[in-house]
């Protein structure tokens, strides 16, 4: 098998040289090792199966050879896929952007071919300008754009500073959706990482910094799977405004105005001079002097912790 120091189409190299390092050497080596194992396993399994089936129709030796050839072919495909996976993965991660870019380029081309320049510019102005001019549409588009951004930022965080396993496999970043406060991203953790790692001191703050957000909260998203977590990224403060209760909507408009009211109360005793200064008797209605809890807590401990509260 080839050594890791050899050149390859994807540019891994231990010598530096002229090649551009697309994937770091240890990762490339690890993938090559995996690809080699996958090649031999595929060769073995497919070769055996194909050989057995082919021997049924052909001469056993020819069948076995055919099986080996098929196995080697399929193994080579698997090998290539696994070796190329780090690069393919990057394409996969940027797929929405790539698709959008292609749509923009080909769309512009098509528009230019079918209309004169001013027509094309008009179409572009309409397609870009209309959503930008209409507030709700613009906010929706921006929210979705943030979802794309956040998934990249989270991937960067996981790769950069969140402890992970020896293989360096990153958590799977599942879809993101906009919320009124920001974004919500679901993540499937790989072996070697747990929610506790993300809850460690300072981790969510680092996530918030990396996501250009105000606050990040991490919580479980599934009662069944500990691996499925939810990351809530807060950019705006949706709780600042008053929340109106929907209960009055249940009241029909045509209720009678003669609503029952309690008997009125004379406006007597509403000010201090109206209440006589009498001696307080120790009847049942006398307010009992409360325990001096405030002084108690302050004398017991300066930070306000009172163990008796938990007693």
């Amino acid at each position: 098998m080839s050594k890791s120091s050899q050149r390859s189409p994807f540019g891994w190299s231990n010598r530096g040289g002229n090649t551009v390092t697309v994937i770091e050497a240890p990762i490339a080596r690890s993938y090559r090792r995996r690809a080699t194992i996958a090649f031999w396993v595929t060769l073995g399994v497919v070769g055996l199966l194909a050989g057995t089936v082919a021997s049924h129709y052909l001469h056993p030796i020819v069948g076995a050879l055919l099986g080996v050839v098929l196995g080697a072919l399929l193994g080579a495909v698997v090998f290539a896929l696994i070796v190329a996976w780090p690069v393919l993965r990057v394409f996969w991660h940027w797929l929405p952007e790539i698709v959008l870019g292609l749509v923009a380029v080909y769309g512009w081309n098509m528009v230019m071919q079918s209309t004169p320049l001013w027509g094309s510019l008009l179409v572009v102005a309409l397609v870009v300008g209309l959503p930008a001019a209409i507030g709700p549409v613009r906010r929706r588009v921006m929210a979705w754009a943030w979802c794309l951004v956040v998934r990249h930022r989270l991937r960067l965080c996981f790769a950069a500073f969140i402890a992970t396993n020896r293989h360096g496999s990153l958590p799977l970043i599942l879809p993101a959706k906009p919320t009124p406060a920001g974004e919500r991203v679901w993540v499937w953790l790989r072996p070697g990482l747990s929610l506790r790692d993300l809850e460690q001191d300072g981790q969510v703050q680092k996530l918030a910094v990396a996501c250009w957000a105000n606050e990040v909260r991490v919580m479980r998203a599934s009662r069944k799977y500990a691996a499925l977590i939810r990351i809530d990224i807060t950019r705006r403060e949706p709780l600042a405004h008053k929340v109106v209760s929907p209960l009055p909507d249940y009241v029909p408009t045509d209720i009678p105005a003669n609503a029952p009211t309690s008997p009125g109360m004379p406006s007597v005793g509403l000010d201090l001079p109206d209440v006589p200064d009498e001696s307080v008797t120790t009847t049942a209605d006398t307010p009992r002097p409360r325990k001096p809890r405030n002084t108690h807590t302050t004398t017991e401990s300066p930070n306000g912790f009172d163990p008796s509260d938990y007693a």
């Binding site: 008053k242 209760s245 009055p248 009241v251 029909p252 609503a259 029952p260």
Partner: peptide, 18 residues
């Protein structure tokens, strides 16, 4: 928490009483 103004409460309470 959602908020109900006094007018809202009175409206709902009157309807409920009725």
């Amino acid at each position: 928490a959602a908020y109900m103004t006094d007018d809202d409460i009175i409206r709902v309470a009157d309807y409920a009483a009725w």
